[in-house]
Design a protein around this nucleic acid. Structure first.
Length: 507
RNA sequence: GGCGCUAUCGUCUAGGGGUUAGGACGUGAGAUUCUCAAUCUUAAAACCCGGGUUCGAUUCCCGGUAGCGCUACCA
């Protein structure tokens, strides 16, 4: 009852067939959370048994994505380096009579599902029941074959397991097809080894289970698309003489159309680099992904990693697929964007400054860190993505304001279509005089500008707008006094002078 | 086709035999303000359908429907 169980060994096993997918990222995050919540060991394993589709570039981009997330792991393996282990395991399973050679030529997938039109294929009797002698003879003759698991049939055997998310699951073994363990090795002449009886490449099922057993993985947390594959895996663990690990399946991430997220169908929104490049903070991205299919059950949405780790349990995982709500115009889920804005606001100024620096640099701005730090408090509540900082703050960094519509210098009363240009001109001239003579601190500017407005018989609004547009080049900008301060007197006077010229030319 | 999983506001979700079905994002309205943003208040918005069990079902059971997954050498 009180026995202390060993710390869990958990793995994340992506296959490097492209960039890091948001779905994979979420699986990684959930595995990490489970591991760290339970003080276990996190194993990262590259499942690269599909030589046709795996690329080095993909391996790089997956690591890049994982590193960006900021979650760590303790051990690292590459499945392709463990090939011998897989083949030896296959041979052992064959030796125990639990698998057989299938000499059926590997069939190319034609698009027509004709073969499975009526009921599921289970096995090929001619192959399953072939005598060992004949099988050996044909293999020795160099005839290519796949190795198939001999699923127990006619014994009324029921396979079952308790899923950490979906609960008790069971299925008669008779319904499980004789799945492949080793792919056929192709034509004999392609093989370099003299004998070459077991040089087929392992399938995912075999390699994955052999490695999970060898690495003593205790908990397999993966996408729900593997739920029904689990029966095969149970059989493999059994054949290996290894205890079956615990399984937990995660609901899938789907697009608004309900389909599983795919690059071909949904474009770059399925790649975590898209989020990174747009200026998501990794902690916000993780926060968002966690909320897709998991709930802390405390009515809170904004969570930091430490809280999530403490609150995370498999019981909190929802069983239905979760929609990532994006559209073509709006590639990011609104909640992800909101969470990002929240995390941006929660960041200390110096940290946010650091995060912003590369985005500014990309736009050609390389201001001093102190300058960025001065600007950050003015824009942090006005940006949702880091990249928004560029359009929000460019006027702080450009030597010369981009051309703007001079009409914006002229305030409009509600309902009006043309404002009082002469008045705007007077405002700017007054402002220039005032700013030339006022200390550039908040209170002084506040007092001086409001007094100037009063002297012109104006309220603050119509007084501030011309000044704001003159120094920022636009109507919507951060609060005026702070903006003037960061810009400095010299720049402000210069820009107001230019605005005056602009306004005069308009008349 | 077979087998499996799932079904609460537009989206993410909480809840659970008797509730005004809760929260969040988004949306509408208002407040505040030097603009924008932020903030605050507020509104609209959901239990897939049909049976059964029950005094009572959105909740439990069955069926249907729909979506998704797996289904002869992808992972």
């Amino acid at each position: 009852m009180t026995s202390v169980s060993a710390p869990p060994r958990v793995r994340f096993a992506p296959s490097p067939t492209g960039f890091l997918h948001v779905g994979s990222a979420r699986t990684f995050i959930f595995n990490w959370l489970y591991t760290r919540h339970n003080h276990g060991v996190m194993v990262l394993r590259l499942d690269d048994t599909d030589v046709e589709r795996n690329t080095d570039a993909s391996v790089q981009s997956i690591f890049e994505g994982l590193r960006w997330l900021g979650l760590d792991w303790d051990e690292e393996y590459k499945q392709s380096e463990r090939l011998d282990l897989h083949r030896k395991a296959a041979e052992a399973i064959f030796a125990r009579g639990l698998a057989y050679r299938d000499f059926t030529p590997a069939h190319v997938d034609d698009d027509s599902p004709s073969a499975s039109a009526h009921g599921a294929w289970l096995f090929n009797p001619g192959m399953r029941e072939m005598s060992r002698e004949e099988s050996d003879r044909r293999a020795a003759a160099g005839e290519p074959f796949a190795l198939r698991y001999r699923v127990p049939r006619g014994e009324g055997r029921i396979l079952h397991f308790v899923d950490g998310v979906y609960g008790a699951q069971s299925r008669p073994a008779d319904e499980v097809e004789d799945f492949a363990l080793l792919r056929s090795a192709g034509a004999p002449k392609d093989r370099s080894s003299s004998l070459g009886l077991w040089d087929g490449m392992p399938t995912y099922h075999l390699a994955s289970c052999v490695d999970d057993a060898d690495l003593a993985i205790s908990h397999i947390i993966r996408g729900q698309d593997h739920l029904t594959n689990t029966y095969k895996h149970l059989l493999i663990f059994e054949a290996l003489g290894a205890p079956a690990p615990h399984f937990a399946h995660l609901p899938l991430l789907v697009a608004p159309d309900g389909a599983k997220l795919s690059k071909r169908k949904h474009g770059p929104v399925v790649s975590v680099t898209t989020y990174r490049d747009a200026g998501f903070l990794p902690q916000a991205f993780v926060n968002f992904l966690c909320l897709l299919g998991w709930s802390p059950k405390n009515d809170r949405d904004f969570l930091v990693l430490d809280e999530i780790r403490e609150l995370f349990t498999l019981e909190g995982i929802h069983r239905a697929n979760a929609v990532v709500n994006f559209t073509e115009e709006d590639p990011f889920d609104a909640k992800a964007v909101w969470l990002n804005a929240e995390h941006i606001r929660a960041l200390p100024v110096d940290e946010l400054s650091r995060c912003l620096t590369p985005f500014l640099a990309q736009a050609g701005f390389n201001p001093k860190p102190e300058k960025i730090a001065a600007v950050v408090p003015l824009i942090r509540e006005r940006i949702k993505l880091l990249r928004d900082a560029v359009p929000a703050a460019d006027f702080f960094f450009v030597p010369e304001l981009a051309p703007y519509d001079p009409a914006e210098l002229i305030p409009l009363k509600k309902g009006e279509t043309t404002g009082d240009a002469a008045l705007a001109l007077r405002v700017l001239k007054t402002a220039r005089e005032v700013l030339a003579a006022t200390p550039f601190d908040h209170d002084s500017l506040d007092r001086a500008l409001r007094e100037a407005a009063a002297s012109l018989g104006l309220k603050a609004g119509p007084m501030f707008q011309p000044v704001r547009v003159a120094v920022c080049g636009r109507k919507n900008a951060p609060p005026l006094f702070e903006t003037l301060m960061v810009l400095g007197r010299e720049v402000c006077l210069e820009r107001i002078a230019q605005a005056i010229v602009l306004l005069q030319s308009l008349a």
